[in-house]
Write a protein that binds this DNA or RNA. Structure first.
Lengths: 223, 223
DNA sequence: ATTATCTATAGATCTATAGATAATGC
DNA sequence: ATTATCTATAGATCTATAGATAATGC
């Protein structure tokens, strides 16, 4: 016996096994939390989806909130890191002539590309994040993981809009992130509202429009 | 005994008593649901906040989801109706020359004014709605209660932007509602991000900027 | 008489812990 | 020997129903 034909009991090292199980748990939790939120999902739901016993979740995670935060943190560092790099690169390239649209393209497209290219797990994470962002406790998680990138974006926007009051720039960002989160949520509402003309999961369509749309908004605030 | 001095046991008719208790239950549920969502709130939490026994909630409402929908519906008709009227009036006044900014001002300001003038209960409802809008099941409630107003707005925007593809107008609305919902959510994030420069509950500040900002966005989509 | 409110309780979960078992690791 | 996984279970809730009590209504 051992590996091969049955394809079921491939012998894995403990480290591998641990890593695989952890990822499966996080994927399942991510999916379920994205639909029902922290309180709408039981550890049993998650365990069943993975096909393990509930108590195993306690072996890997202290409790439910800890699991929730782990789901948030896993991909937050990826998107935050990528966007930070991309913004740094853009700031260097643009020198003292950055544009609002340029900065927004980098900030938004880099994020949207992750979901577009990342398949189902990343799409689940998108909805998970949107849900988190909308609540008082969730917003604190956003602070912890995303403040640096957002403040980086804001600093570039300030240079692109030297005559715009700082307050306006923050409100502009508030609008941008609202539009982005509404996209990530994929509630299905725009599909039905538009009679099928637009689709919630068509992030390409959003990517094509959002930076230009929002950049014009920032410029309009000056007037 | 009876009315007066103690101010506690004012004699009320059954109809009054029913109406008062119902409103108290809805207010308490609205507040709690706005913070924790359907699954994060127990009927006991609601009952305790009202100061009645849990089972009384079952006397007035069939079950928890029914209570949740009642909370949603109570004020939805108010804001939907008001905005519908205001949009009809605007459409009549503007004749065949409506503007994007004009229509958005009516649609958004009429809503924001309700929260600004309605005090705490309306502010709780705002957060409640934002939370609902962000989820697949919640979005269906939005459809039921808000499709008519939104489609009215869209029809005016179409006349204001005859050369813009319908698809773009729907995506534009998607961005607008995202920004609005992010406002209604009052997550506190913009407060901390801006170092106190902006405040989540400053709906006046949003009202001052959002229509102009979004109108410019719509116009930019044509280019 | 009717309706608002409370008492008592069944039945179902849910979280989290203690301790057993079955794998992998040297 | 160590670590991954499961069994058994305590203790706490939570929803929802049945039936009692205390008000208001004529």
């Amino acid at each position: 016996m051992s590996e091969g034909s049955t394809a079921k009991r491939v012998r894995r090292s403990k480290a591998e096994q641990r890593a695989e199980t952890l990822e499966q748990i996080l994927d399942a939790a991510e999916y379920l939390f994205s639909l029902q939120g922290l309180h709408g999902v039981t550890l049993r739901d998650v365990a069943q989806r993975v096909g393990v016993h509930t108590t195993l979740l306690h072996y890997y995670f202290q409790d439910k909130p800890t699991l929730f935060e782990a789901v948030f943190a896993r991909r937050a560092s990826v998107t935050s890191g990528r966007r930070m790099e991309a913004l740094d690169l853009y700031a260097a390239e643009a020198g003292d002539k950055p544009t609002v649209e340029g900065a927004l393209h980098v900030f938004l497209d880099t994020d949207l590309d992750l979901y577009i290219e990342g398949g189902e797990p990343w799409m689940n994470y998108a909805a998970f994040c949107a849900r988190v962002s909308n609540t008082p406790e969730g917003a604190v998680l956003m602070d912890v993981h995303f403040d640096p990138v957002v403040l980086k974006l804001v600093s570039i926007l300030k240079r692109a809009l030297p005559d715009t009051p700082e307050e306006d720039i923050f409100w502009g960002y508030h609008f941008v992130t609202g539009a982005l989160m509404n996209t990530l949520a994929r509630s299905g509402r725009i599909d039905r509202l538009s009679g099928g003309l637009c689709r919630s999961n068509d992030f390409e369509a959003v990517k094509k429009r959002i930076a230009k749309f929002m950049a014009a908004g920032f410029h309009a605030l000056k007037d």
